[in-house]
Design a protein around this nucleic acid. Structure first.
Lengths: 258, 258
DNA sequence: AATCTCTGTGTACACTGTACACAACGATTA
DNA sequence: TAATCGTTGTGTACAGTGTACACAGAGATT
């Protein structure tokens, strides 16, 4: 990777502009020369399929090109570089949920809950989304529309604009954070072929001495209660706690108003 | 990277055992041969320093070795591979907060709040922690002790063991999730040299048409209220909301008990 | 028909993790 | 003391990465 990190600083945001232009359209299509055999959309689609199937580590320009039956350098006629392609992949993924009707019946809680579940499902479909370092939030039109819908869920319930944004942020932070550890554990189990039970068995060989020494009292207690191996759904539990917490604030604000 | 992904499956957890043995100690030190010039601890320290200073992308075996004044392959006498080294780095980082006295005055809320703040500070010190894919949770002794302390905060307040674990999980999921986006935005601003104001200006060039078209009504409203550029602290806001949410459950459980 | 622009691609370079072979060292053993 | 043998440190090599650059060919415009 001979990518010069300081190059980004020199071009005064030109790289960002290129990404934005690709996402929002508005690139003037040329009139001369041969017709392009590919398109940005097909490249993005192929890249998402590859990342879904084999993970981010397998996502290389050469492999994407091979999947499309072209040479590696052909991609650079459509996309400035890999990082811009990843930006496009992210925004494309956000579009998947936008088709469905987004008006959920019920109050703010039901609407926000639906947003949380949708985001959770998105990460399960595209685990690589959690590994990429998103340079900036809300780069593209689809992720913006997605955020707009989420904000609509907490509109007109007595919160300030900052609090509305805060509510959406705390929910999606929780979802992303939990999804990351959950999915990585699933992938590790899949990759190593070691089940959760085997894992704890191996682990206990080494942890054992610390347990009998009386360190880790809480882990011992919680572990003996079977809390690690149980079917307890941390997503459902956490989702309700976060919504409860937002409810406390919202009720307080509505009490103030009356 | 000619790393064969299926190799992990074949060795029946031997790679995991090697990591565990390195972290928990118990490797029999040899008697023959020349004295080792390095140690696992010094390698881990050098790796953490490098990752702190230049990020995960700069963390290569050659660069770590160069920082220590040895050849790249020398590291492999102490560490089986890069992924095991990263495991060790993670566990080492968790040890940084363990020295301080962990008994915080006050009730569960103050104790849990302290845990959340400590984790937040940890991610600010070591941003690379958010990018690595942790194969398994709680691999090492230090991260386990850290979790043990967190669990102690919610002990004896009427929650089941599963709920205790759930409480810790929801809090640290929120912290990790928000830290990831926050830190990545900070790093992007630093790397590209584009300030938040400039960012929104560039962004609005492309978003503008969508705004005047009446799409993105909420983003328009929230943006015009200045909620994006404000000093609003999303960490503090979210932290209180999560704690509020846990409080609702805890009060309910304590109401049941009486 | 000539020109000019755009597409597609092969090659090359500076990187990466790490398998492998081998020299030098030092404690144990004969 | 001399031979043995496991251990440390290292150089080389290989398969992979992103992408700069030069160049062939196509196709619309002049």
């Amino acid at each position: 990777m001979p990518r010069d990190e300081t190059a980004d600083r020199a071009d005064g945001g030109a790289a960002v502009r290129r990404s934005l232009q690709l996402m929002w359209g508005g690139a003037p299509e040329p009139t001369r020369g041969p017709k392009p055999g590919l398109s940005v959309a097909t490249i993005v689609r192929a890249a998402i399929d590859l990342a879904d199937a084999e993970g981010l580590v397998a996502l290389s320009m050469r492999r994407i090109a091979a999947a499309l039956g072209v040479g590696a350098m052909s991609l650079y006629r459509y996309v400035p570089g890999k990082s811009e392609l990843v930006d496009l992949m992210v925004d494309e993924v956000y579009s998947e949920d936008l088709g469905s009707d987004d008006t959920v019946a019920g109050g703010w809680r039901e609407r926000l809950e639906a947003c949380g579940r949708q985001e959770w499902a998105l990460y399960l479909r595209h685990p690589w989304m959690l590994q990429i370092a998103q340079g900036r939030p809300m780069l593209g039109p689809n992720s913006m529309r997605s955020t707009d819908i989420a904000l609509r869920a907490v509109d007109e319930i007595g919160l300030t604009e900052e609090e509305m944004l805060g509510a959406v942020v705390v929910l999606s932070s929780f979802v992303a954070g939990l999804a990351k550890t959950t999915i990585e554990a699933m992938q590790a189990a899949d990759r190593t072929g070691i089940s959760d039970e085997e894992w704890w068995e191996i682990q206990s060989e080494y942890v054992g001495p610390a347990v009998v020494a009386g360190e880790l009292p809480m882990l011992t207690k919680v572990g003996e209660a079977g809390a690690f191996n149980s079917m307890f759904d941390h997503f459902e539990f956490g989702l309700q706690r976060v919504l409860d917490g937002l409810g406390v604030l919202i009720e307080r604000r509505q009490g103030d108003a009356e």
